[in-house]
Simulated assay, not measured.
Amino acid sequence: MSKNRRRRSAALTIMSTALVLTLAGPASALAGSAPTADSAPAASAAHPSGPRVPTPTAHRPVGTASARLVDSSRPDPWRADAPTRELMVTFWYPAKSARGTHPPYVSPELSRALYGLEQPATLRTGAVADARPAAGRHPLILLSPGFGMSRTTLTALGEEFASRGYAVAAVDSTYETSVEFPGGRIESCRACGQEQTDPEFGAKSSRARAADLRFVIDRLTGPGHGGPVRGLSIDASRIGAAGHSIGGAAALEAMREDPRIKAAANLDGSIWIPAGDDTGRPALLFGAGVGSSPESTRNWEDNWKRFTGPRYWVDLPAGGHLSFSDSHWMVDDLHLEEYLPPGYYRESYGSVDSHRALAATRAYLGAFFDRHLLGRPAPLLDRPSPRFPEVRFAK
């Protein structure tokens, strides 16, 4: 049975290169001023035709909005001359109506910065820009992408959660990927390269991202804030976090640091800070088998022993490290494999069908948060399912 792999080379080293569609791009963001929220670039013209983000499995209308948030309480961890931390966040949430404009996946400018290509900018999203939120208080899921990867690479997962009734906030890791701010300003990756020379890089990134996630919770639930999406009500008693690669490590770290986070999921990411043994809260580890190594297995085994709450470890044996992001289906649907270096597709995506990988990711994460945030039955977490023969229970 294949187990999770650490994937430092593919998650960090490869991600920090300029290879097309490694989804490692420059990251960044500039420091801002006092706590503010600005509207994101108005890239909301619908594409009348062309490929689109895979449709969510639920049928509830989904709204989306992006905002710039500035945390004036701390300096930026990657930029010494920035006294505040500036972030871009995309929100997905249950909407009252499916009518409206569907924003593009990324702007042409950001697509070039991230991938060196404009094809991803032709993708249509399924959510409606600035739609009115549905009534009620919604549980919140925070998402953190892999190193060098944009928050947009979790769009299919974000739209899925929103269609299930969750509010979702995907947070870009400033200076760990290319980030586009209001007005079209694009900041590049200042941290790229440090992962190869700094043995403490993984822990530093995990802590910085965990602080980002905690700040977003503050903005969405704190007194007098209400969040950047007008009319969106968050149930502060039901908050979860999930991430891909180092974003998964950050989700676990954020849960360790913040009792408001009730459950966390790690998609194929090394755990750079030993998991705490005192939370007693649920954790999901979802790994990919391609490229697994004894070192990566030990990383999860050592931390597995420290989880004292409900814990789950499942594996996608035929998958690759990037199968948990939009990168996999995007390469297939946009026919971009020809742009990849020889052997890169197999190394990063494995042999699993990209849409099956997405379906499994949506299903198992959905079951995990449904059980532990909403109290719903989730038998998918208890035993192998004929619905997903691609998935194996590692523990």
Rank of each mutant, 00 (worst) to 15 (best):
S233A: 15
R376C: 04
F147E: 02
G319M: 05
R60E: 02
F286R: 06
R311E: 00
M88R: 09
D235K: 09
P342C: 01
G116S: 04
P35Q: 00
G240F: 05
I273M: 06
D172C: 00
N266R: 03
S292P: 10
L154M: 15
E200G: 09
T152R: 08
T17E: 07
R306I: 03
G291C: 02
A129V: 04
S237F: 09
V229F: 12
A27V: 02
P341I: 01
P379S: 11
G309A: 08
I271Y: 01
I246N: 11
H244F: 13
R219N: 00
I14V: 14
P108Q: 08
A43C: 11
R151T: 04
K3D: 13
A24Y: 05
F388R: 05
R362N: 10
L336D: 01
T84P: 14
V352Q: 11
L340Y: 10
P75H: 03
S173C: 15
G126L: 11
G291Y: 03
L114Q: 07
K262F: 00
L232P: 11
K96C: 10
T13D: 14
F91S: 00
A65G: 05
R164G: 00
M255Q: 15
A65K: 14
E86H: 07
T152N: 12
G146C: 13
R356P: 02
A34V: 12
A249Y: 12
P310C: 00
G63Y: 07
L232V: 07
S97W: 03
G280T: 02
I141H: 02
I246R: 08
A129P: 07
K395T: 14
A80W: 07
T153W: 01
L284G: 04
A65E: 13
T361R: 15
G148R: 03
G184S: 08
L380S: 04
A359Y: 02
V216F: 06
D382R: 02
A242K: 03
T122Y: 01
T64D: 03
A275R: 13
A134C: 05
G25A: 08
F388T: 00
A249E: 10
P317R: 09
I14R: 09
L19P: 00
T122G: 06
G193A: 10
V20A: 14
E337V: 11
G343L: 05
D38I: 06
C192W: 01
D382L: 12
A359H: 11
E253Y: 12
D172L: 09
D277K: 15
G291I: 09
A242N: 08
I239Y: 09
W313S: 15
T221F: 01
V179A: 05
T308K: 08
P75F: 00
D268C: 06
D353I: 04
L142A: 13
V106P: 01
E187C: 02
S28Q: 01
I261P: 06
K96Q: 14
S28A: 02
R298S: 14
P379T: 08
Y339L: 13
